Simulated assay, not measured.
Amino acid sequence: MSLEMEYDCPECDSSQFWKTAYMEIHLGKKTKWRCSDCGYGFIRINGDISTADA
Rank of each mutant, 00 (worst) to 15 (best):
K29G: 10
G41T: 10
S50V: 12
G47K: 00
W18D: 13
Q16H: 07
M1L: 05
I49Q: 07
E6Y: 02
K32P: 04
G41F: 13
S50L: 04
G39K: 03
K29M: 12
C38V: 02
S14Y: 02
T51Q: 00
G39F: 12
G28T: 04
R44Y: 06
I25P: 02
W33Y: 07
C12N: 05
S14R: 14
C38M: 00
M1Q: 04
F17V: 00
D48L: 09
T51N: 13
D53V: 11
H26Q: 13
E11P: 07
S14T: 03
A52F: 05
S36C: 10
Q16L: 08
T51F: 10
C38S: 00
R34L: 01
S15C: 08
S2Y: 02
C9H: 04
Y7I: 10
Q16T: 07
T31I: 11
M1D: 00
C12D: 06
I45C: 12
C12H: 06
I45F: 04
K29W: 10
M5D: 06
S36K: 08
A21G: 11
M5S: 12
E4M: 05
W18I: 08
I43E: 08
T31Q: 14
S14H: 10
C35L: 01
I49C: 09
D13H: 12
N46Y: 03
G39E: 15
D53Q: 13
M5E: 09
W18G: 12
E11A: 15
G47S: 07
G41N: 07
A54P: 07
I43L: 12
H26P: 14
T51R: 09
T31E: 14
C35T: 03
N46H: 06
S36Y: 00
Y7D: 01
W18A: 04
F42A: 01
S36M: 03
K19T: 13
T51I: 05
C38Q: 02
C12Y: 00
G47T: 08
I43T: 14
L27A: 14
Y22Q: 15
C9R: 10
C38K: 00
S50G: 03
K19L: 11
S2I: 04
F17R: 10
K30D: 10
S14D: 09
T51G: 02
D53R: 14
T31M: 15
Y7Q: 09
S15L: 11
L3Q: 13
K19G: 10
Y22T: 05
D37H: 09
M1K: 03
Y22F: 06
Y7T: 06
M1S: 05
F42L: 09
E6I: 03
K29F: 10
I43Q: 02
R44G: 11
M1W: 03
K29S: 12
A21V: 00
K30R: 15
I49P: 02
K19N: 07
G47C: 04
N46C: 14
Y22V: 09
A54C: 08
S36H: 01
